[in-house]
């Protein structure tokens, strides 16, 4: 698979480490009343969709940036690559 890095251009997926579902960006509030339940869902439960899947890849053998890759899990076709930083900021996770 080739991941089209937003900064570095097309790179072999072998340069990256796979982390999992991009929902991992949305870490729950540890002070919330239902924090234990939310963290169980965050840590252990996954949609595991067959089809389009947004997922985190870390460019370990490159610029060490985190990416959000949109990929079809039934064909491995990659349709969108974003910097995880930008995604997190757009969701108000980071300032």
């Amino acid at each position: 698979m080739i991941i089209n890095h937003p900064i570095l251009g097309p790179r072999d997926a072998a340069e990256f480490v796979y982390k999992g579902d991009a929902s991992l960006i949305n870490r729950p509030d540890w002070q919330a009343d239902d924090a234990a339940e939310r963290f169980h869902e965050y840590g252990y439960l996954r949609d595991n969709s067959a089809g389009l899947h947004r997922e985190l890849w870390f460019h370990e053998q490159g610029d060490r940036s985190w990416l959000v890759v949109t990929r079809d899990t039934t064909t491995h076709e990659i349709t969108k690559v974003e910097l995880a930083r930008d995604v997190a900021r757009a969701e108000g996770r980071s300032r």
Partner: peptide, 18 residues
């Protein structure tokens, strides 16, 4: 292999990735 797909139809999210 397809557990999440099938159980998803019953509204159950699993601690599983395929």
């Amino acid at each position: 292999g397809s557990s999440s797909r099938v159980m998803g139809m019953a509204g159950i999210r699993l601690p599983i990735e395929s």
